[in-house]
Simulated assay, not measured.
Amino acid sequence: MRRVCLPACTRLAAAFMCIAVTSLSNAPAAAEPVPVIFDTDMANDCDDAGALAVLNALADNGEANILAVVTNRKCPSGVSGAACDAINTYYGRGDIPIGTDKDGAKVPWKSPSSYTPTLSTDFPHDSDEDASLPDALTVYRKTLAAAADNSVVICSVGALSNLEDLLNSPADELSPLTGKELVTRKVQRTVIMGAAFPRSARPETNIRLDPPAAVAVVCEWPGEIIWQGYEVGAALHCGQSLLQVPEDNPVRRAFELRPFLGKRSIDRGKPAHDQAAVLLAVRGIDEKYWRQSPFGRVVIDSDSHSEWKPEANGRHCYVTIAGHPAALTTLIDELMAQPPRSRTKGND
């Protein structure tokens, strides 16, 4: 069975905040940071905010290089990009390019976000509203065109609309390559949080947000895809660690504002679908935490149900949690609560 893991981190130890605890988050950095494009539906669920915190923490640890952040669903409040920028700014990375999907997924949000307006108004950033930010496709093409060949990892944690747009994009002033050619040449690996495996009992949210886009990606994406199904994040309840971080942390505020089961998400934690996907994208399939299926292909039907099927020369695999979910839960919570390096060193 082929393995697609990036260099695995084997020692995890450090202290975070001023609490006398053993940390699993500060693993030794890989030889080179992993270049990542983060594709998020930042607005509905706060696990997107938690995922961007994890990604920034891994970048602080020397494990990731955040090339760009793009949003894949139209936020009714119009400030999903600003929320992303507020989080990046908190970690000292306010210059990361941000793009927004102007069309949005096929299934729109009908209610305002519980947290993006507050992150936009109450935390430092210099982002415009979503309508004035560069288009997500433009950011994708520009970022990939500038990247080294076979270097970029795409982590998608929402609708697959941007990925479909990239696939269908023609050559332009940014690159003489089509979108499919750019992916083939520049993308090392794609991690998608979506669907359910080995088969779904009901349509998973990220698939049903834009079914035609999901079908296009599973049928036409030219590279390998690691799928992380709904069942993974459902077993990982994270967020309570944010009660220990400063109140000026925008991710803490997102978890305070997002309701979950009649309480605040920060009070009891909530499923960490997107945080786990970011960890998987950067650190790869570390056998301490993950089991990998054989390679095959993912099939999505007209009702947005998903199923993995074995296939010779298939390019898709999916992961399950190895052992008890507590180890991954602890690791994600510690990364979310890890203090920004820019603040611990005093150089905003």
Rank of each mutant, 00 (worst) to 15 (best):
R2H: 08
R2W: 02
V4E: 04
L6E: 04
C9R: 09
L12W: 12
M17A: 15
V21T: 14
T22I: 13
S25Y: 09
A27I: 14
P28G: 12
A29G: 11
P33F: 03
P33C: 14
D45L: 11
D47F: 09
A53L: 06
L55I: 03
L55A: 12
R73M: 08
R73A: 12
S77R: 11
G78N: 04
V79S: 06
V79Q: 12
T89I: 02
Y91H: 11
R93F: 04
D101Y: 03
D101P: 02
K102C: 05
K102A: 14
K106Y: 10
V107M: 13
P108Y: 03
P108L: 07
W109T: 08
S111F: 07
S113A: 09
P117T: 04
T118K: 14
T121M: 07
D122H: 12
D122T: 09
F123T: 08
T143G: 09
A148I: 00
A148E: 09
D149N: 12
D149F: 02
G158D: 02
L160N: 04
S161N: 01
S161H: 11
N162P: 03
L163K: 02
L163I: 03
E164Y: 08
E173L: 09
T178I: 06
V187N: 01
Q188L: 09
V191Y: 00
F197Q: 04
P198V: 01
E204H: 10
T205E: 12
R208Y: 12
L209V: 08
P212D: 08
A216I: 01
A216L: 03
A216M: 06
W221R: 00
A234L: 11
A234N: 09
L243D: 15
P246Q: 08
N249C: 11
V251M: 06
A254K: 05
L257V: 04
L261A: 15
L261S: 13
G262P: 06
K263N: 14
D267E: 07
K270Q: 10
A277W: 00
R283F: 00
K288Q: 14
W290A: 00
R291W: 01
R291G: 10
V299Q: 07
D301E: 04
S302R: 13
K309S: 12
G314N: 02
V319I: 10
A322R: 05
A326D: 10
L328W: 03
A337I: 06
P339V: 08
K345I: 13
G346F: 07
N347A: 15
N347W: 15
D348L: 15
